[in-house]
Amino acid sequence: MIKLVDVNKSYGKTPVLSQINLKLEDNKIYGLLGRNGVGKTTLLNMIGNQIKASSGHISLDDQGIFENSQALSDICIVKEEGIGVEDIKLKEIFETAGILYKNWDEDYKDLLINEFNLDSKKKFNKLSRGNQTLVGLIVGLASRARYTIFDEPSLGLDAAHRDRFYSLILEDWEKNPRTIVISTHLIDEVTSVFEEVIILKDEKVFIKEEVASLMKRAYYLNGNQDTIISVIDRDKIIHREKFGNTVIIALFDELDNGTKEDLRGKNIEISPIPLQKLFIYLTENHLSKEAM
């Protein structure tokens, strides 16, 4: 298990992440969500030993991660910005990854190269943005690292490639279970892949919860405003849209069956909130963590 305890990160005097406490369990697929600039990449780079935390402790199986060869041999981070070198042939990138990752699967790498129709003889900087992203995805998947981290893995990818990537993640994860962390902005596309989501807000971990449990607490209520307000807790409203006498309220609260029946009896339509919408409401809303 990867554990972050009271982790802080600042750039100069600007704090980016404060008091991060987090556990990443084995063999789970996590979605890391947050608005631009909230510190997702910084958090992933700290876990992947790319940068050092300003304070706090990050460990894998109770061993500190930073500059720890043993711990790092179980982690693969695929960064949005690439590997820091661009004038290099794909063949060389894959060969290097093959030497440096202990569980590297050469056959799987070849299969993925064919799957995505990449030419290993080409140089990385001659590829389209989408194909550059694919190179990172192949490294991440073929690394078979116990903890595989993808930072914005969908950048530049067309819909077909994104869909194939998500399928591959699930297929491979079934055969070779491991912990996968995906940071993305295209939330709805990946909702079915995530087992748990971590939402960062205001420099902190705002929510860390299983997707299924989170979705059970998020509803759209569509109908007469007064009727809805009379049944629900106002403090749990995270979004409201009014159309004449009708209102659509996004509610972040558990509703028991009795309440649901009551609302339906009063002509209130109840529907689930897609994860992306929920994320938007939660990250822009005044709703405090205490209220949850």
């Binding site: 030993n49 500059e67 060869s69 041999s73 981070i77 590997i83 070198v85 290099i88 290097t96």
Partner: peptide, 17 residues
């Protein structure tokens, strides 16, 4: 430094190693 170092660190090698 300009090629092998970023590749190695990106592929989970420690700076010490």
């Amino acid at each position: 430094l300009y090629k092998n170092f970023p590749m190695a660190i990106s592929f989970s090698v420690t700076r010490k190693d």
